[in-house]
Design a protein around this nucleic acid. Sequence first.
DNA 1: GTGAAAGCGCTAACAC
DNA 2: GTGTTAGCGCTTTCAC
Lengths: 333, 333
Amino acid sequence: MAKPPSLQDVARTAGLSPATVSRYLNGSLSLPPETAGRIDHAIETLNYQPNPHARSLSRGRSDTIGLLVPEIDNPFFARLAAAVEREASAAGLSLMLYSSLNRKERELHYLERLRRNFVDGLIFATNHVDDGELTAAIGRSSNVVLVDEDIDGVDAPKVFSDNVAGGRLAARNMTSAGHRNLAFIGGPEGIMSSRERLAGFREEAAMAGAEVTVALFGAYSIHHGRDALRQLLDWHPDVTGVFVASDELLFGALETLRDRKIPMGGGLSLVTFDDAGPLAFLDPPVTAIRQDVAGLAREAVSALRGRIAGIEDPPVARVPVELVERRSVSPLV
Amino acid sequence: MAKPPSLQDVARTAGLSPATVSRYLNGSLSLPPETAGRIDHAIETLNYQPNPHARSLSRGRSDTIGLLVPEIDNPFFARLAAAVEREASAAGLSLMLYSSLNRKERELHYLERLRRNFVDGLIFATNHVDDGELTAAIGRSSNVVLVDEDIDGVDAPKVFSDNVAGGRLAARNMTSAGHRNLAFIGGPEGIMSSRERLAGFREEAAMAGAEVTVALFGAYSIHHGRDALRQLLDWHPDVTGVFVASDELLFGALETLRDRKIPMGGGLSLVTFDDAGPLAFLDPPVTAIRQDVAGLAREAVSALRGRIAGIEDPPVARVPVELVERRSVSPLV
DNA sequence: GTGAAAGCGCTAACAC
DNA sequence: GTGTTAGCGCTTTCAC
């Protein structure tokens, strides 16, 4: 591997100074066609590519942003990563992918990279409750945007799904099918998404004269989904419709249904949240509140770019969700 | 935001030269405890963090590797990304995530970044047939490792699942349940994974006196899965077991089964490949050949690190696959 | 319109 | 053990 050509080399073979070539390349200069041609030609023949590290060092930024998620192999975050990469790439930014495994030390670690300009900004998704340390660390960094889940007290642009509206849509779908005795299986109690999804669900249910009898909080996990539904069936056998606050929870719930030989839909009506998994292929296909992951990514990248450019964005963007009606809610006769 | 402290600052407040501090930080030096203490203290009080770009520029490498996949929001690649990130992070490497959308220009683009030392190495997954341009580009770069799918003629370390063994496992599972008339629904015909999975399937079937009557190639897509199974049912109604070469294809096939009201298992026995989706939650749960994604990632990162360090690895690593038996294959009586 | 020169923050000879 | 010096390859004043 020969040493790659530098700007110097290009300048030399074009008979110009590095400075001129640099400016030309960065568009901060319009050269006479003849000169420009010489440069282009030199670049071509040398097969020149700028060295991004030198560039970053010199400019103090890297045109690279980071995305920090709890775990990439969770269909929702996988889709988020894909969408963020797409947006970033379209904006000329590269994406560093970090996974925190929901552990605070790792989150703090990655915030440090931001502080050192390793990345120009960080899109931050977490879903555990914070004891304040994270809030403080984020406070110290500018150029962070929170996505998907809030952290109390953080002063940064935030991009969330409209969870309340999602809860409402779920409730409306069930109540209009005649369900009156409803339940909610959610994520951690302290967390925004759980709270808001339940709030919307409850409000809208009440408006239709229905009631949310039980709310079971826990981890956003298959495990909790399974156990919560078991508990629900044991203790509240008269519930006919349940709103499950994530795909993970749904899969757990499905296990319980299968164990008890209760058919989804006919036996118990279900609506889930996320719609990141292959819900259309389940039997019956599962009605879901679909998060607009592309929209979240778009807003998040745009907010981050604004932040990097020093523009003040509106503090919180809410991205609409959508009801995808399939066949897991049966009319109650 | 005040300007962050530099190595210079640390050196100054510790009463040393930058060089000494640098060496100390890089472990290429053991200092008398007193001196070391002064440095540590200075770092502490200044809250110093090294600037990675300066470091990269100076050292000519960035301790960052790239992962290029067709699409991140495909459960298999999402899991691969997660596992690669984990391995990289454990080895002190950061991960840049690129998605090619299976488009050659994008793949070439990212190879350029490698050439320019933006990343020290690249783990490359693609699944389209190459016209030679890619082969050439990869040939020009060292520090590429191919994962998951081969590109003909590329000279680079390669890490693949043991597709042939996977095909065999699928065949054995079906033949021992009594199936004799089998079919294969695969990905693109020209591609290694398709070829090998079919080859193993066919060989092992033959050994049990069964026959693979049909092999339907196409994209690794839901669409192809759906259409292929339709075609299969129309033209070869006597087939009783089909081996579907990816989860995507499976989901397509499930659509067709549902349309035709054919129960999976009882009506038609199915085995799939990948096991990256929530197959355990389908009804019935689907038997699959499971790729060891963590193993693929481990081998790939290790091969890449070896390559970066100038060590010659064995050219091709094969990662074992595993049969996960569920209930989509019924005994044929 | 173009060039010279001084950095960006770090590492790596080479000295002592 | 520690300091001096010279880059790494680019951008960016400041001149002309």
